[in-house]
Amino acid sequence: MNEHLRALLLAVVVVNTVLALTTFAIWFERKFAGRMQSRLGPTRVGPFGLLQPVADAFKLMQKESIRPRQADRVLFELAPLLGATCALGAAAVVPLAPGVAPAQLDLGLLFVLAIGAVTVLPIFIAGWSSNNKFALLGGMRAIAQSISYEVPLLLAALVPIVLTGSMDLSEIVRQQAEGRWLAVWPFFLGLPAFAIFLLAMLAESNRIPFDIPEAESELVAGVTTEYTGMKFALFYLAEYAHTLIASALAAALFLGGWDGPIAPGLHWLLLKTFVLFGFIYWVRWSLLRFRSDQLLSICWRWLVPAGVALVAGAGAWVAWGPTP
């Protein structure tokens, strides 16, 4: 019983931390985008406009909740909840500091990847149940994209698994902390795998240049076209939380997670996460968008073969490479 209570408490703490971090990430992105576009970004609420996402949240809470008459009743309401749950669920296994992870799973990485794969379902459910053609097109695009990019994502994640011989994220990070970061050595395996992982992650979390399911210039607001108020806020939050957690994962897999000198581990993890997050948004605010067929061709023609080669290379490295 005590154990359950502890797990529940931990879950509450983690979820709220992630949400708080997400609001900060939203502010960070708006300011960041503003500076890239020679604007100021939010300035009026709180110091440097820090409270802007909070104001948005209070605003969205008060908005009327509209469900279109023709929409599928249950699924339409379910989709945003599912979306937020999936995005936050992945946070459970991210190792925060030496020996500290919300949930210590032997198959942590598998769990994360599985949850990541499910994320596409709420998006499609939202697109389909809205009874809106733009949303439907967005949902169809999301399915095609996510299923394709799942493959290179898994292949890229296999490289650290093969190299460390573990599927437990904490163990992967521990090995990196004791030896070298995977992106540093063997760099000819780690760096390309890291790059593929990042690209696939961008596609999974629907960020530009892979944001075709949203594609505001084509599909208005994609799958979320019909969502109002808090339901939209959940999607919005899920999107950012997903990117944030994916950044943390990439940091754990390839950049040694909490490993770093002087400061405690959590600081390093946060720093690495936000550097990656910033990189994603740097890309987002400077690139244009692919067309869906180009997107898929990149995936199947380049990323998947490269991923297979990397996994094979990792196997060879473990079998015949220098023993640590």
Binding site: R30, G34, Q37, S38, R39, L40, G41, P42, T43, R44, V45, G49, Q52, A55, D56, K59, K63, I66, E216, V220, A221, T224, T225, E226, Y227, T228, F232
Partner: peptide, 22 residues
């Protein structure tokens, strides 16, 4: 909404769908 005036300073952004606008 562009750089010189920047409505984003006061938290105002432009949404393409009426469902998410105030």
């Amino acid at each position: 909404a562009a750089s010189r005036v920047d409505l984003d300073r006061m938290g105002t952004i432009v949404r393409g769908t009426p469902r998410q606008a105030d």
